[in-house]
Each structure stands twice: as C-alpha cells, then as structure tokens.
C-alpha cells in the first residue's frame, strides 16, 4: 500500500452525462440527441465505478476520493457519486483552458488531479466506468492509467484486496462477441487502475459488512446533502499543469466536421407488406416456416 499508515486510498473518476431515461431524454426531429433539453446525471457507468469504491470503503475501510473534469455543473456528478460511495473528498477540475480537450489532454488533467488526492499520499486503486453512455470513447481511463504509471485492468467484475501483501486479485470479463465469454482471474500489486464491467455489482457477504454498508449509506446521505464541504475545485494552475499539455494545445486530435450520416446503399430489396392484412401476414408466416422449417414445428 502506498500510504504508510495502512489506509487504503481509492479514487473514482466520474462523468456527468445525459440522462437517457424516459421523460428525461429529448431527441431532435432528426433522431439526434437534444442536449439542451436533456437532463444530466451521473453516468450509469460512473455509478458502477462509484459502487466499486463503496465496496472498498465497506470491506477495507478505504478512504475514497471522487473526481471529475468539467464545468461547475459537473459538481452534480460528484454529489451523486458521493451518495453512492460515501466519498471523503470530491475533486472538480474546472478551468476554461480545459475546454476542447481530447482524451489525451483530459487524462493529463486527471493524472495531475489524482496525484493531489488523499493529501498526496498516493492512490492505491483508481476506478472508472467502462465507457460514458453518450458515446464516449472509453479511452480516458486507460490513458490516465498509463500516465499515472499504473497497470490498467479493464472489464473487472470482482475484486478483493490482500492488504497485508498490498495485492489485488481480480476477475475480468472478456466479451468475445458472438462467442462464449471468458472470465480471467488476475493478480497485481497495488497500485492499479481499474475500469468496471457494466455488470459489476458489489456483493457484501457477511453480516458485519452489511451493517457497515448501512452505516456508510446513512453517512453518504448526510454527506452528499452537504457535499460542498467535501468539494475542492482545481484549476490548471493549482494542478501545476503545463498549459501546453491540456485543453486544445494538449490535444493531438480535432473534430474536423460533424455531418448527418448519409443513408447507405440498400443492401436488400424489401418486399413492402401491409401489416394490417391478414392475407399478407399469412404469406409471411408461410415464408418464415419455409426458412425455419422443423425448428418451430415439432
């Protein structure tokens, strides 16, 4: 463990994202997301990452820091994350110069921020979500890991820590789309950077852990209602960042243009059938049977 006192320090990187639930999401007439009218919430994958930190807090008494980069409204994500993981510290990295950053420049900010956490004692595990749901790249996590010099381990579905040895043991899910999935079991010395598989859900398997969980949830409610007391806001300067490595100057990539995706060439020529005609559907049924044959009739 990095902290000589024996406390496990963990961090969570979260993101404020559009809320895709019914009633909160709004689409433009052309099918694209209406960002102005869509509410923003803690992204679902960020929530999963927060729950992994909760596990560390309940089971190992970890000290939890949560961070996000964004404009001041991104505080909402920190607050919602704190409600999940009972965070001890919230970091907002907010500076006009960070605007327009691509993943490399973003991860530079996060790297610097993580270094500042937990009184600069060093973070043992950083958690982040699988990907952001608004079509994010899934690159920020691994790039931040690399910049921190932490081994990156993705798609984690379970982990446990051996505090004595300073090791973490994990299971990760490797999706071989179309094939059977693989569960890989790994072991690594701390520190590590973990992204959680969307299916991750912490499980607390003793009465004591459950009692501790309840205490933490109780506490989390109180804390998140006064989250500002836990909030520290950092600028590029207070993070001691080189201005050439963040925001636009630090971004190798640019968005060149955004356009509507033109309709692809038709691959098939569809027979168009009136769905309200029983006669037509009877024909469709016959064709389905013709292809599927005995599978559906035993």
């Amino acid at each position: 463990m990095l902290n000589p006192s024996g406390t496990l320090n963990v961090a969570v990187i979260v993101k404020l994202e559009p809320d895709f639930s019914e009633g909160n999401v709004s689409y433009n007439s052309d099918g694209t997301l209406n960002r102005a009218e869509t509410k923003n919430v803690l992204g679902p994958h960020s929530a999963v990452a927060s729950s992994a930190a909760l596990y560390a807090k309940v089971k190992y008494g970890a000290n939890v820091s949560v961070a996000t980069m964004g404009p001041p409204i991104a505080e909402a994500a920190l607050q919602q994350s704190q409600l999940i993981c009972n965070a001890d510290e919230l970091h907002l990295y907010s500076d006009r110069i960070f605007a327009g950053a691509d993943t490399l420049a973003t991860s530079e900010v996060l790297r610097a921020g993580i270094k500042k956490m937990a009184n600069e004692q060093g973070i043992d595990i950083v958690f982040s979500g699988h990907r952001a749901s608004d079509g994010e790249t899934g690159q920020t996590g691994p790039q931040t890991a690399w910049k921190l010099g932490y081994p990156f381990i993705g798609n984690v579905i379970d982990y446990d820590i051996d505090k004595e040895r300073g090791y973490v043991r994990l299971q990760r899910l490797i999706k071989n789309y179309g094939h059977n999935d693989i569960i890989e079991e790994l072991e690594s010395p701390l520190p590590v950077f973990i992204t959680l598989d969307p299916s991750y859900s912490p499980f607390f398997n003793t009465v004591s852990q459950r009692l501790n969980l309840a205490l933490n949830q109780n506490d989390a409610e109180k804390r998140s209602s006064r989250y500002k007391e836990y909030l520290k806001t950092f600028s590029a300067q207070s993070l001691e960042l080189n201005l050439k490595s963040v925001g636009l100057p630090g971004s190798p990539t640019i968005v060149y243009k955004v356009e509507k995706i033109p309709r692809a060439k038709a691959n098939r020529k569809a027979d168009i059938i009136d769905g309200y005609s029983q006669e037509n559907l009877s024909q469709v049924a016959r064709r389905i049977y013709g292809i599927l044959g005995e599978t559906i009739i035993k």
């Binding site: 569809a270 309200y276 029983q278 559906i296």
Partner: peptide
C-alpha cells in the same frame, strides 16, 4: 432498416404482431 430488409411489414407493432402470431 428497410434497406436491410427482405420483407418490410408496414404497421404498428401492437397491431401487426398479434396477427402474425395468429397466422404462425
């Protein structure tokens, strides 16, 4: 999706499916 379809049944799900299930 019509450009990727061999048969395109035009109609509302709640109305087409019960009929199609019946026919099958």
């Amino acid at each position: 999706i019509i450009d990727e379809s061999d048969i395109f049944i035009k109609g509302k799900i709640e109305e087409v499916l019960p009929l199609l299930i019946k026919e099958i």
